[in-house]
């Protein structure tokens, strides 16, 4: 038995010994990447304790492409950072919030950009690569990213296992390891990036081909949103709900959109939050300010953030 266990140990030990340094090298190199719409940049800012903001903006892509922190800073005189996370519902937005307040000074004000999909829970862990460099032995990541089709338990606890089989990711990390000087510019600025794109015929035809969609509200996500509000209120953080402009013709494709709006109104009332709804705002009726039905383009984002700043000044600050 002893001989067997020793042999097994000899077989496993070199692999175990190698796994942590390899993990460390790959994770650090990956953090240099600006792909995936700059998601690593936001995570890096969080884990490097770089954010000293008064206002934090949460949401999906409708937050990070539409709400410009610099404009808010100019109008409100408060440091602002946009934490919008691409393609994710509130569960992952909450994970970002937890990690942000754990590693940085807490903000005074949080703007939650809600939309029709905030209270859903997608099945896949979209852009799951963004979690790779930060997830080893990270309890919050294990709790909030494990309910998806994505990672297995071992990925959170055993070094290097989560990189196993991800040859493209390892290759990407390798390029940063071999050429550390080759650092391109950040994709987002303070978590924000607008797109100088125009609505064209292809968007029209895409919209025409859209099928009607029914939101499946996820009860746990709603509970999480309410818990988040309570936690913020206990910490003296003001929460404001914002529903950013959404192109009017696109709104009809979500069958139970009004149900979502009603939930937000209900929660806002329950916790005495300000809810700024721009879905019927004049911007929502002008195609020229959008590059698709749910995202404002650069000009639209600029105009909207200006208006938001003015409204926030009136009602909150």
């Amino acid at each position: 038995m002893r001989r067997f266990l020793l042999k097994l140990l000899y077989l496993i030990l070199p692999l175990v010994a190698l796994s942590y340094p390899l993990d460390y090298l790959i994770s650090n190199a990956l953090k240099e990447d600006h792909g995936m719409h700059g998601e690593y940049e936001v995570w890096n800012a969080i884990y490097e304790n770089k954010i000293d903001g008064d206002i934090a903006i949460y949401g999906s892509s409708r937050a990070w492409v539409q709400i410009n922190p610099e404009i808010l800073e100019t109008y409100l005189g408060k440091k602002t950072y946009n934490f919008g996370v691409d393609g994710h519902n509130f569960r992952i937005q909450y994970l970002r919030h937890l990690e942000y307040i754990k590693h940085n000074k807490k903000p005074r004000h949080i703007i939650v950009s809600v939309d029709a999909f905030t209270l859903q829970k997608r099945e896949d862990l979209y852009n799951q690569e963004q979690f790779l460099p930060y997830m080893l032995w990270n309890k919050n990541m294990a709790v909030y990213t494990s309910g998806y089709k994505g990672f297995s338990k071992a990925d959170y606890y055993i070094p290097f296992i989560r990189y196993a089989g991800r040859t493209a990711t390892i290759k990407k990390a390798n390029t940063y390891l071999l050429h550390p000087e080759d650092t391109s510019e950040n994709f987002r600025q303070k978590g924000f990036r607008s797109f100088d794109l125009q609505w064209d015929a292809s968007v029209d035809s895409l919209l025409a081909s859209e099928k009607k969609y029914r939101i499946k509200f996820h009860p746990d996500t709603r509970t999480l949103l309410e818990r988040f509000i309570q936690e913020c209120q206990n910490d003296g953080i003001t929460v404001t709900f914002v529903y950013a402009p959404e192109y009017i013709a696109g709104q009809q494709y979500v069958e139970n959109r009004e149900e979502a709006m009603e939930i937000y109104r209900e929660i806002a009332q329950k916790y005495s939050l300000v809810f700024l709804d721009y879905s019927q705002n004049e911007l929502s009726f002008k195609k020229e300010f959008f590059y698709n039905a749910s995202h404002l383009n650069k000009e639209g984002a600029h105009l909207f953030t200006q208006q938001l700043a003015q409204d926030l000044k009136k009602v909150t600050f």
């Binding site: 290097f160 196993a164 089989g165």
Partner: peptide, 10 residues
């Protein structure tokens, strides 16, 4: 063992 780590499928 390394092949299992390197080429592991989802």
């Amino acid at each position: 063992a390394l092949a299992i780590l390197w080429f592991r499928g989802s």
